[in-house]
Nucleic acid binder design. Sequence first.
DNA 1: TAGATTGTTAATCGATTAACAATC
DNA 2: TAGATTGTTAATCGATTAACAATC
Lengths: 228, 228
Amino acid sequence: MSIRDKRKLTGIPDGVIGRLPVYYRYLEELDRNDVKRISSAQLGEALEITAAQIRSDFSYFGSFGQQGYGYRVDELKKQIGAILGLSREYRMVLIGAGNIGRALANYQNFARRGFKIVAIFDSNPLLEGNYLAGCVIQPVSKLESYLKENEIDIGIIATPYEYRQELCDFLVDNGVKGIWNFSPIHLNVPEHVVVEHTHLTDNLLQLSFRLNENALISGGFDEDSQKE
Amino acid sequence: MSIRDKRKLTGIPDGVIGRLPVYYRYLEELDRNDVKRISSAQLGEALEITAAQIRSDFSYFGSFGQQGYGYRVDELKKQIGAILGLSREYRMVLIGAGNIGRALANYQNFARRGFKIVAIFDSNPLLEGNYLAGCVIQPVSKLESYLKENEIDIGIIATPYEYRQELCDFLVDNGVKGIWNFSPIHLNVPEHVVVEHTHLTDNLLQLSFRLNENALISGGFDEDSQKE
DNA sequence: TAGATTGTTAATCGATTAACAATC
DNA sequence: TAGATTGTTAATCGATTAACAATC
């Protein structure tokens, strides 16, 4: 079965999609440090992923290496970048200029990779007209006309309580194809729309669980606490 | 095999751990809205998870429901909260008072759940002495003495480039048991320490990949774009 | 009681890993 | 060439799902 067939029939597993940015990030770093060549074994060592898995992940998309040599860092980085969709620009609107919204707007690395925040909206009238990262903060009432006049790829939802599902529906109805959700709620979207959830609290609760799990195990099982 | 045996032998699967905070968050919302009772089918409907998986997840920890009735919302919330380790407080230090660091420090929901930022450090001398969310920003040179004098559970690494692995090692050497890493690098830690990675860029790149994957599939396969 | 829904087992599905022929 | 490492297949492992007896 061809790579394209496999992809069409089964889709790319979530695990693979989750690891692609990890590879990309590390390849960027290697490239910055002028490393020219890397093997799947070396990659695996650095990222705590098995070499077999790395090769298997890559094989969903093609053959990027050379037997007996490994991978050329710059080449592999370029290929994975293309797979991730980094060869074009994305226009994003940010809804919510609170703590998280401001951090995202000021973060330079998104724009550097082609993800531009082109408009910012907030329901707080006190913020209206203020500048944030070079954008005027607009009232949410202007969102609809803005979306009708501008093609937007991604909507970032960083409003803590109000709106949420309704806001998401509104963005989708007005042509936004991707939602990046920071609000602490599960959003339902139609099949053709993509949602990425970034729930900081969930991450912290997972950390909390594992802290206690570790404590529990090393409490009960002394031989385990010896392991490196 | 008892629940406790199962847990000890195999550990809890990552998927389960990842879903626990999702359940918890939704139960909080139900509780706020005075919902008293919920079935695994209803939970699954709202969260796009199968009912069987939800019941299977819960069964790693015990039996919290009643046949023919379902789950009492307040009770289940309490139980999952306890499993997540929310019955005690956690003391956290924040390293890095940049965009993300400031957003985290100002975010009220961590403290509300028992996760307190008790000290903030930054390597930028211009920030030294400024207040952030009620904490003085201290120079990183004071971190060592601070950790020796105070028991800290979690270190939040929100420094974009400098330090990173070295900083992580330093925190671990000084007794920190959990690391919440926002820097764009993979951190290696000893077995007894827990790392949680929150890489915002990775989330955005995953969204980017899926946007293109969807476009690709509906481009090639018109019958697919008909699906709801 | 009858109806509903849990907790758990067995079956299925999918992802990871080990192994190795291909080949640079 | 000999050595190294890929890409891929088959084997293994683990997670999800379907089904249902137990029982509230």
